[in-house]
Simulated scan of single mutants.
Amino acid sequence: MFIDQGRLSLGSKGISMDDSGGNLGDVNWNKVPNRVKKYLQKGTRLPPSERKELVRFIVDECIYDNKPYPRTSQLRIVAAKAVSKYPKSLLDVCDGDTVGTGYDSLLNQLVNRVDNISRPKSQVSLKVHVQLKDGKQFKRKLMDSYGCARWQPDGLPEGQTEATQKDIMEKLQDKFTKNENGDDVETDMMLTYATQRRHINSRDHLLSDTLVKWPYLFQEQFLILHCNYLLDFNIMEKMKMAYANKVPKLLRYFEDQPKEVVKEIELAKKKREDNTPEIIGLLTCLGAYFEEEIEQVILTMPTDQVKYLAYNLHCFCEYNIITKFY
């Protein structure tokens, strides 16, 4: 595999790597996180988690000192420079051949990252979705381009202040330690929805902080409640429909591939006498097909911890991966 370090095709124009987009493409590679740097230096492919971390790093490099968010045309130069510098780790290849421009996947990730962090806190770009019901048109609630009906509410519920929201949050934390799951917990979770979203949407939030501040969000009942309100539809019904419509098609496709995973799924289904192995089996199939390490997708842990996190993994993996094959 050969790549010209001085020029990488930018669409059909073949823009030179020396073309300026200001100094936007001049990423300080010395600041790359160490766990990412070791792959780049060895010239090996980045695992999914390290690649995501690299994307975050590059975008942060592009928008320092309150610079405006970069345009796609500028990110194109950044992606091309990055791939030219580390082709063995970043170049899009299939069976040794360069795919497309060689940096399309990295460019898409950079664009998605910029889109995510630049999303408005208010619903200024909401659109009305019109659907047919019983032969008549009706209007659904406003949704943004990502399909969220309540990405970030503008204010707090009537009668609520920052102080009362903090009190309710601390009360919920105390109830969680006492293993309480009554109706009042559901009421308080809905009452603090706007504050939860503000925490989740903050640029530098950590999942570990969310687990401490809003532990009920990691329980099935309240995660579903939150998602239903965010998206304005029943997420479990949507997932069941996605499973029924898409998983069988994907598994039929994988049956024609030279992989052993499908056979293992069938054996597991016979042993358990149900279809549940298809869920985790599909993730395994996808990992095998794209030659990714399944350990980067599926977290293994002791049995006593599985029940606590199983739904969290099931929901995010199945909804974010399976429903993309629509």
Rank of each mutant, 00 (worst) to 15 (best):
L156D: 01
V36M: 03
V130N: 15
S12W: 05
E158W: 07
K31Q: 15
L54R: 02
S105A: 08
P70L: 01
K271W: 03
D97C: 03
V27K: 12
K238P: 00
L211R: 08
S73A: 08
R7Y: 12
S9Y: 05
M301D: 11
K13W: 12
C285W: 01
T195P: 01
P48E: 01
I117L: 14
T187W: 00
T98R: 15
P87G: 02
Y193N: 06
T164D: 02
L250P: 03
S202W: 11
Q123A: 14
K249W: 05
Y326R: 14
I280H: 04
S208M: 06
W214V: 03
L142S: 11
K307N: 03
A80P: 06
I321D: 01
P120N: 06
I224W: 13
F316R: 08
R7V: 10
D95A: 04
D209A: 13
G22F: 14
R7M: 11
K52N: 13
L132W: 14
K38M: 11
E162G: 02
P277D: 08
L191E: 05
K127I: 00
T323K: 12
V297R: 10
E318A: 12
C94A: 09
R198G: 02
K136D: 15
L211S: 07
S145E: 03
S122F: 09
D95Y: 00
T210D: 14
I322C: 09
F254E: 05
G43L: 01
T101R: 06
Y39T: 13
H199K: 11
E158N: 02
R71S: 11
D92N: 12
D188P: 02
N28M: 13
D188K: 03
V185Y: 02
Q41A: 10
K259E: 10
K127T: 02
M17W: 04
P248M: 13
